[in-house]
């Protein structure tokens, strides 16, 4: 099923920009059982990439231990007008990318 929305908020903080993101994702560890007792297959974001104007500035490797509908906050060197892109890929090969302009 298509990935749910991703919400990104960016706030200029002097030389850097504080980025707060919320990603819609079940983050199933593969260790959980549903109500009728069968295991829910692992389905979690494995990699997150943050880039400024197309240049990667930060990458993260995640496991199923990151909470469902993950929250991710970081700070990058950027200024008004720059484009910040956040992209995630999960263990099923699904991915989602959002770009916002720093205001």
């Amino acid at each position: 099923m298509a990935a749910g929305p991703m919400r990104i908020r960016a706030k200029i903080d002097g030389e850097t920009v504080n980025v707060r993101a919320l990603m819609s994702h079940p983050m199933e560890t593969g260790l959980r059982k549903d109500s009728s007792g069968n295991t829910i297959p692992a389905h979690y974001i494995t990699e997150v990439t943050a880039s400024v104007n197309g240049k990667t500035v930060l990458t993260a490797e995640w496991s199923g231990a990151i909470s469902t509908n993950p929250y991710f906050e970081f700070d990058v060197k950027a200024k008004a007008g720059d484009k910040i892109t956040l992209k995630w890929v999960d263990n099923k090969g699904e991915s989602k990318e959002e770009t916002i302009e720093v205001k």
Binding site: T16, T29, A50, V52, K55, T56, V57, L58, A60, G64, A65, I66, S67, P70, Y71, F72, E73, F74, D75, V76, K77
Partner: peptide, 14 residues
């Protein structure tokens, strides 16, 4: 981290 990102992050874990 690359030099363009501060070595600081926030997230939530199980």
């Amino acid at each position: 981290f690359t030099p363009e990102a501060l070595p600081r992050v926030k997230t939530r874990v199980k």
